[in-house]
């Protein structure tokens, strides 16, 4: 399958990329790993006039950990994240999710920036980004701005990024003491896309009860979402509340219904994998 014709440019600076992007009048797409965009172009679901390859732009390929948390450049691949000991220490659920993306070859090309900016309803990293309460840095012609995870995903394949903005960095705040995180996934056996993926971050208080829980679900609705009903049902409670809280994982969500799984089955998976992710996260918080 061939994509429709397009022009290809590979700028070597962010400023040049931004200029090309704004000159295109909305007809250009950014490409890095290309593992979400090229399949869509081969199916002619996307037909950009120009591809702007951002892989040559320096400074977008670093993983940094400091007291404030974890900062990852947009071009860092899922394979780099999955094999990073710093990420494994700082945010275990991100390691786990990156390691479960697609397969070895896909992880070697796919980037964290692409995964978030594409906002595939079945992408893994959006769930972790939400459960970690992260933020992205977006560069536009007039400067930089920060977008919080809770404001980032708008609809299917749609984010809060403006047409002429480039996502440059992803930040995950440092975990509070006594916080455990986990990612649990039920994937399609051929594509390895998530039929359901759940990221959970649980912080326990002095008495051992749950001080705060953040839970995010992907693969179930049109976009990854925070399961707020689950989170509320856990605050101030102990481990015995997990089962009942997890029952709310798909409440109020219009679940995807396709050849891979019915809406009813997806809702069921969301509940089961929410319980599992929470159980692991809680165990780690208490360890």
């Amino acid at each position: 399958m061939y994509p429709a014709k397009f022009d290809y440019v590979a700028p070597s600076s962010l400023d040049e990329a931004l200029r090309l992007l704004s000159e295109s009048g909305g007809e250009a797409k950014l490409i890095a790993g290309g593992h979400s965009l090229l399949p869509m172009m081969k199916l002619r679901l996307a037909q950009p006039a120009t591809l702007i390859d951002i892989r040559k732009i320096p400074g977008l390929n670093e993983i940094r950990v400091d007291a404030g948390g974890l900062t990852i450049g947009a071009l860092v691949t899922q394979a780099q994240i999955a094999s990073s000991p710093e990420v494994a220490r700082a945010l275990p659920m991100l390691s786990e999710a990156a390691e479960k993306v697609g397969d070895l070859q896909v992880r070697n090309k796919g980037t964290i920036g692409g995964s978030l900016a594409h906002s595939d309803p079945a992408g893994d990293l959006p769930a972790v980004f939400l459960a970690a309460d992260g933020e992205v840095i977006a560069r536009g012609a007039s400067g930089e701005r920060t977008i919080r995870a809770t404001d980032f995903f708008v609809d299917i394949l749609t984010t809060a990024l403006e047409e002429n903005e480039i996502l440059t960095q992803i930040r995950f705040p440092a975990l509070a003491p006594r916080t455990g995180t986990a990612y649990a996934k039920f994937d399609h056996p051929a594509s390895h896309y998530a039929l359901t993926g759940v990221a959970a971050a649980v912080t326990v208080g002095d008495g051992g009860s749950i001080h705060q829980a953040r839970v995010a679900v992907t693969g179930v609705g049109v976009k990854a979402y925070r399961a707020e009903g689950v989170e509320q049902a856990l605050t101030g409670r102990g481990g015995d509340a997990l089962q009942a809280a997890a029952e709310r994982a798909a409440d109020g969500v219009d679940c995807n219904d396709d050849i891979h799984a019915s809406a009813e089955y997806r809702a069921h998976l969301a509940r089961v994998f929410t319980r599992r992710a929470l159980a692991t996260a809680l165990e780690r918080a208490q360890a």
Binding site: L38, L51, A79, G102, Q105
Partner: peptide, 28 residues
């Protein structure tokens, strides 16, 4: 031809990749 089956796998700069989902110009 949809980056699932892996029949097109080659090594690019030391890493296994699916050559059906990479443009030749990206391998410059």
């Amino acid at each position: 031809d949809t980056s699932q089956c892996g029949a097109c796998t080659v090594i690019m700069d030391g890493a296994a990749v699916k050559a059906c989902t990479i443009l030749a110009v990206q391998a410059d």
